[in-house]
């Protein structure tokens, strides 16, 4: 089965205000998609709706994931079915250590898949191995989840979690923002290491720079709640050069969808 995710005519509102106004998107296994677009057009909203955030109201449309109706799955079951969202603003959770968090998550996911829980030593070994993916220091992993982490550390921690949980569909929401140049390379390398022919990745970003490392198969422009333009990776370069004004003009002139 090649196709993994299919979004059809998705309309989403928050507190009565329509944010997504008919999004269409198809993602196949093995692909990398980039979503770009001006601030406030609904990129994070799209990611949250896929993760299952209850605050958003889906008023129209469908999302099919691995041939299942995504809306039938609870937040946790979506994760257990292989969806991972790297959040733009990861939450701080005082008192919950990263290792307790990951152990609980991993064992619940394993249980869902009919696998026995990891032993303590297996788990520790896995942690050590995956910490290397994003060059996470030992100090961080003993701390409470994201508590007092710098912006960049939070983003690294998201990718570390992704490495631990080995998702099939990863949606990375501005994982590059706030990263210094070295960290950007480390994170991008991490994402690339985790990519396989069976997995798909959607990266949401404002900067073409990330796409030098994580090379997308398709670039989409989300504008006014819709994907108004899609193109090859060169589209990202064009956007970086020209900004979004021309998209806006073409959109208003009805030249785009």
């Amino acid at each position: 089965m090649l196709q993994m995710l299919e979004i059809n005519n998705l309309h989403v509102s928050i507190k009565g205000k329509e944010i997504l106004k008919g999004v269409n998107l198809k993602v196949n296994r093995g692909e990398v998609h980039a979503i770009m677009g001006p601030n406030g057009t609904g990129k994070s909203t799209l990611a949250s709706v896929i993760a299952g955030k209850e605050l958003f109201e889906v008023t129209e449309g469908t999302i099919t994931y691995k041939n299942k109706n995504l809306f039938d799955l609870s937040i946790e079951d979506r994760a257990r079915e292989g969806i991972f969202v790297g959040f733009q603003y990861p939450v701080e959770i005082p008192g919950v250590s990263i290792s307790n968090f990951m152990k609980t998550a991993l064992n619940e996911i394993r249980q869902y898949r009919g696998l026995p829980p990891l032993t303590a030593s297996e788990f520790l070994k896995l942690m050590e191995e995956k910490k290397k993916v994003v060059e996470l220091t030992a100090k961080l992993s003993n701390r409470s989840v994201n508590e007092g982490f710098s912006g960049g550390e939070k983003k690294k921690n998201e990718i570390f979690q992704m490495a631990m949980l080995e998702p099939e569909l990863s949606i990375l929401d501005e994982t590059d923002s706030g990263l210094d140049i070295d960290a950007l390379r480390i994170v991008a390398n991490g994402v690339n290491q985790l990519k396989t022919k069976e997995t798909a990745t959607i990266v949401i970003t404002h900067y073409q720079r990330l796409l030098d490392y994580i090379v997308p198969d398709v670039v989409h422009v989300l504008f006014d709640g819709k994907i108004v333009k899609s193109g090859p990776k060169e589209l990202a370069l064009e956007l970086e050069e020209k900004g979004y004004d021309w998209i806006k003009q073409e959109y208003e002139q009805g030249k785009l969808i």
Partner: peptide
């Protein structure tokens, strides 16, 4: 929400 989005039940 954050914990659940990693597969932990409510």
């Amino acid at each position: 929400y954050y914990l659940r989005s990693r597969g932990i039940c409510e």
